[in-house]
Design a binder for these strands. Structure first.
Length: 587
RNA sequence: GCACUUGUAGCUCAAUUGGAUAGAGCACCUGACUACGGAUCAGGAGGUUAGGGGUUCGACUCCCUUCAAGUGCACCA
């Protein structure tokens, strides 16, 4: 629609002798209740025209109608100039743009972006919160890739630390040699079980010590289990063979389990980082900061940065004993990633409880003069809440990722069997379809919401399959495919004389796809894509009900509608792909 | 206490980044071609955009303030 904007700039110059920039022309979609497809807001021009908004709009409308063959008419309501674009223009859009092989395919923009997501701890299985993280990260990577970026998907695995030692210790003491093979339990779940066992036994000891007269605080410090776990961590750091062996075995179990869950979720990574390899990094950056005067040393030898001038606090970056803290490690990892990939941008998909941490991290790196720090971005997303409040692993109120996926599949099976449309499918095909539909429902449900908002998930109320949902969109796609399978497209440029409103509106929606991808990429927001595809599906279903395709009035119209249908199916399929959702041919 | 985020229909979410009478879905009510797939479509009802002030032609959107919810404020990660 740039040509409308350019012409409007000319109109203002011609009519009111004022030069404005294209950015000053506010163009929007015309609201459904009015005639036209695009609307120019003319209030701002009344300054130069010195006329009423209505008069200004009429004058510009007249100018556009005379100058542009594409403009077939206009109407003015208050400061809104609604412009009708000719059918010929929309048909041209359909045949020259939308059906072209390169529609919504962006040329490589020469920029490299890293998306870090998932980043699990290896002491427990993935839950609903991780699911949101994984789906967001994967979708954002897909969208950036579609927008022309070269994307590197990374996973920084938190595979070390006291929490890992807790699972290890509990297994050692209470595990009786259980393995995934011996129990048939998924490795991550088995290890998670012992993390819970640790917590239970630890609490028992605390109670005993309290009964013996210690305060809560003392008891927490003195309980034999926690001391053993701390000792185990020291041994791990010292490279004790037995501890390292156990650590590798148990982490191996967890990785096997994670791999299955990742596969079911349909996410993948180009590069894994492990904290066991990166936790010592960052010390040279501390030296660098000290030399440059960005950091300072306190009397006890600890190293700090003063961020009070930026409205933040003083922040410790190295302990007095010379060991790293969390942020030291993150500084080092950021440097490592940049050295390895030289990316222009780097997105961290991490929950909003770490907002402050990332604010500080990015600020420190900027103060250190790292030019690449400007490209760092924390994609912060809201917590997933249950109706009962926050998920708490200790209280058993977490929604487990594997359970959730299984439930979605079984709901999909139930709904599909009731409708009985795919009774000729083999069992294998059915299982695949149930997975596609179940995940479609779940992914769409989680991704349509603005990432920064918290999300409410009610496990008792199964995710809907009707209305504004993934399956609705998948159904629309399957239905189009069904129609297409009953006819052949023979005429690639069938131009009907008339264009019904429903047909034109569908074309208008389809033309917006590239811009939607662009906006979603800028905002790192899959929700924009999700809501858009829903608009496409709705517009298609409306068109479908209003017009017969296979029994069209004549062959020319039939060919046109087939083309329009095929184009809609492609946009739906590509758009859903950006969300990591598959669309079936039949369902 | 301080900082950040959020607050829109009974519920779950939108609103082209300052534009028109704030839109969808679910739930509720009323209808639809003996079918190209009814997991659909058309319609009805449902709102003081948490409250109050301000900025301007115009505010869900920006500023101030009050309230509510969440998160953070470790020499944990």
């Amino acid at each position: 629609m740039d040509f409308i904007i350019d012409a409007t700039v000319k109109a203002v110059k011609h009519l009111y002798q004022t030069t404005i920039t294209p950015a000053e022309v506010s163009l929007q979609e015309t609201r459904k209740e009015f005639e036209g497809q695009v609307t120019i807001v003319t209030f701002p021009f009344t300054k130069f025209s010195r006329k009423s908004p209505e008069q200004t709009g009429t004058e510009i409308g007249e100018y556009l109608k005379n100058e542009l063959t594409e403009v077939s008419g206009f109407n003015v309501i208050k400061g809104f100039l609604n412009i009708s674009i000719s059918n010929a223009y929309w048909l041209e859009q359909l045949y020259k743009v939308i059906t072209a092989a390169d529609f919504a395919v962006f040329k490589p923009n020469g920029k490299k972006v890293m998306v870090e997501y998932s980043s699990p701890n290896t002491n427990k299985p993935l839950h609903l919160g991780h699911v949101r993280n994984n789906l967001l990260g994967y979708s954002v990577a897909q969208i950036l890739s579609a927008a022309g970026y070269e994307v590197i998907k990374t996973n920084l695995v938190n595979d070390r630390g006291i929490h890992i030692c807790k699972s290890m210790l509990a297994w050692q003491k209470f595990g009786n040699g259980e393995t995934p093979e011996s129990t048939g339990e998924k490795g991550d779940h088995l290890v998670g079980k012992y993390y819970v066992v640790f917590d239970k036994e630890y609490k028992k000891q605390i109670e005993e010590l309290k009964a013996a007269g210690q305060t809560e605080e003392e008891a927490k410090k003195n309980a034999p289990l926690i001391k053993e776990a701390q000792e185990m961590l020291l041994q791990w750091e010292a490279g004790n063979d037995a501890v390292i062996d156990l650590w590798q075995t148990m982490n191996g179990w967890v990785y096997e389990g994670f791999a299955k869950t990742y596969e079911k979720m349909g996410v993948a990574f180009d590069k894994y980082y492990y904290e066991s390899n990166t936790y010592l990094l960052g010390k040279d950056i501390v030296d660098e900061g000290l030399a440059g005067g960005v950091f300072f040393k306190k009397a006890d030898g600890s190293v700090w940065i003063d961020l009070t001038a930026d409205g933040l606090d003083e922040k410790l970056v190295l302990r007095a004993d010379g060991t790293s803290v969390y942020i030291t490690q993150d500084m080092g990892t950021a440097q490592l990633k940049y050295d390895e990939f030289k990316m222009d941008e780097s997105i961290y998909v991490v929950g909003n409880e770490q907002d402050y941490h990332f604010k500080v991290l990015f600020l420190i790196l900027q103060k250190l003069g790292k030019t690449w720090a400007r490209g760092l971005f924390h994609l912060s997303y809201g917590m997933v809440d249950l109706p009962s409040g926050k998920m708490k692993s200790r209280e058993g109120t977490v929604v487990d990722a594997d359970d959730l996926i299984a439930e979605m599949e079984s709901t999909a099976r139930k709904v599909t069997e009731e409708l009985g449309k795919i009774n000729d499918f083999s069992e294998e095909e059915k299982v695949k379809l149930y997975h596609t539909i179940g995940m479609g429902a779940l992914k769409y449900f989680l991704l349509k919401v603005d990432p920064k908002k918290r999300l409410l998930f009610d496990p008792n109320e199964s995710v809907d399959f009707q209305g504004h949902t993934g399956p609705f969109i998948q159904y629309t796609h399957a239905r189009i495919k069904s129609v297409l399978s009953r006819a052949t497209i023979t005429n690639l440029n069938a131009e009907p004389r008339e264009l019904a409103a429903g047909e034109r509106d569908l074309i208008v929606v389809l033309t917006q796809f590239p811009e939607v991808i662009n906006q979603a990429a800028i905002a790192f927001n899959p929700g924009a894509v999700a809501n858009y595809i829903y608009e496409v599906a709705k517009a298609y279903n409306k068109f479908y009900h209003e017009h017969s395709i296979l029994q069209a009035e004549d062959e020319l119209i039939k060919q046109f509608r087939l083309q329009l249908s095929a184009a809609s199916a492609r946009v739906i399929s590509k758009g859903m792909n950006l969300l990591g959702i598959e669309v079936p041919e039949r369902m």
